[in-house]
Design a binder for these strands. Sequence first.
RNA 1: GCGCCUGUAGCUCAGUUGGAUAGAGCACCCGCCUUCUAAGCGGGCGGUCAUUGGUUCGAAUCCAAUCAGGCGCGCCA
Length: 599
Amino acid sequence: MTFLFAINHQLSTINFFSMTLSQELESRLSAALAVVLGEPIACTVTAAADLRFGDYQSNAAMVLAKRFGKNPRALAQEITTHLDLTGLATSDIAGPGFINFRILPAAYGKRVEKLLRDPRLGVPATGAGKTVVVDFSAPNVAKPMHVGHIRSTIIGDSLSRIARFLGYRVIADNHIGDWGTQFGMIVYGWNHFRDDDAISKDPIAELVRIYREVNLRIKDSPEILDVCKNELVKLQAGDEDNLAIWKTCVALSKSGLEKIYRKLGVKFDHWLGESFYNDRLHGLVHEFLENKIARESNGALCIFSDGNVPLEDDPFKVHKEDGWTDNPAIIRKADGGFLYATTDLATIEYRIDTWEADEIWYVVGVPQQLHFRQLFDAAKRWGKVADFKHVAFGSILGDDRKLMKTRSGENVGLIEVLDEAVVRAAKVIAEKNPDLQGEEAAKIAEIVGLGSVKFAELSQNRLTDYVFSWDRMLALHGDTAPYLQYSHVRIRSIFRKLDGPFDALAAEIHLDKDEELHLARLLTRFGEVLPAVLDDFRPNLLANYVLELARAFHSFFEACPVLKSDEPVRSSRLALCELTATTLGKGLELLGIEVPERM
RNA sequence: GCGCCUGUAGCUCAGUUGGAUAGAGCACCCGCCUUCUAAGCGGGCGGUCAUUGGUUCGAAUCCAAUCAGGCGCGCCA
């Protein structure tokens, strides 16, 4: 009996410890609601929009007033009299019937002490037991990565990191475009325009040059295109010469891509490109035909979906009047070739059957949303079940407000952007902190410059289009990566000056000044923000959070001396600094942004 | 023609999914280094949330229409 009780007690304690403040307020509020309204009712408590109203707020009274035919303020009053917030918070009623909560400083202090012991920093493992495949970056072989590729790569990498921290088994898969029409052109170019010297010097640049050269020639004499198509047919039929050229080009491209990823700190678990699925395509198309999911139209094999339900007597016919021609996904061309959709279906099959994916996230631009709608629909009808998500992002536009096209050579290359970012960061270092020299300065410039590019991308809503601008992407002042990195550096500086040992776990937290309280408030909120990021795949929520945290720290830093204050304030502040450093560091790590020791 | 995304301060963008007096950064103005890194801190200026209707206790947010920009709609990926 006693033993069982002890276990139960421990379980509930563990549970209690892992609850965020908003969850704890919710559980206490719903207990009060049960008393007042006579039935258990779920309710939500959110962080207050404005600190003047308190730390958290609930609109439960206003929502429920109508359902129970009561006056909202009177109901709120009734609820608060039954609300037990002992040791946690105070509450009051305001406006049309909000219940506002103000967390007691002592309760924040306790939370901070707990977080100092928690390697998860209060973040619940919402993804435990689930496998997700994240499909991002996916550049085409032998085409240069330009600024347009940056969104998928950076957003995808960050989402992968966050999912991993939330307990998911994450498989980051780089589905590179290593098979397809462009290889006809590349083989042709390889045979006609290759410069072996250039290949040995800079293989990527030479591949890019070859590809552009072919495109230019085709403009002048379109008949070359037919020759290219023929090379492609030979390649796909297994022609040894062409296959060898293909293998060489893919290998060269990959090594170039790996250099960029290494620089960006982006890692993949797999690189299963389109070619990997080539052998499966025939059988797959056959299956779709047999199951009457696809049908022939104008010589091509098509899957008609778009919400059209097949009729029972004729599965190819659909209810919609113009359904015969409406938005089909083509899985086999009239000439027998396979397409994007075919490979993607084979990829889904592999990911579900081999990796047992529960979810698949595609970090791909908005323009492809029709494709994914068709793809997910086809997969579903094929019996491949998983939670498919198209994590779409807006386009990067040129100065003319038009989409940046891959084909036109005038695009800004990704490497160029990254290099320029580092150059600009180096300039600022020389100006702000000339003591830093040589290799150390170069390393910091790299961390700061690359961080700026990443943060510029991650701090905004992924769906908005934007016009590419150097100054915007490489800004180093204001709400930028250096601001965040600098706050971390300031904390490190404190600990560098600290002589003698310090044990944060032994510290008692006292929150007397507003700046201390606010810092603690934000520190306890990390566990609420992070899961919300994956609700709608919005890394910018995390970016906003770390900005707020850094801002709170800078204010604290100016207002509250740490090393020069007396005990017990000194230890309390040191512990606050330590938790800020770990939380900020973790937040930045999840955004893929490094932190320098000094700057 | 059909469909999708976007429209918020001079500029670049947030806005916790329907909450209270719409927030940041840049730019501009004022103040703060003898004190843990001034890449910082404190304060100020700046708004008809594209427009018009509607839904309700309550709308930047939801619905409808209009205007403007971007994108997608059969054999590229």
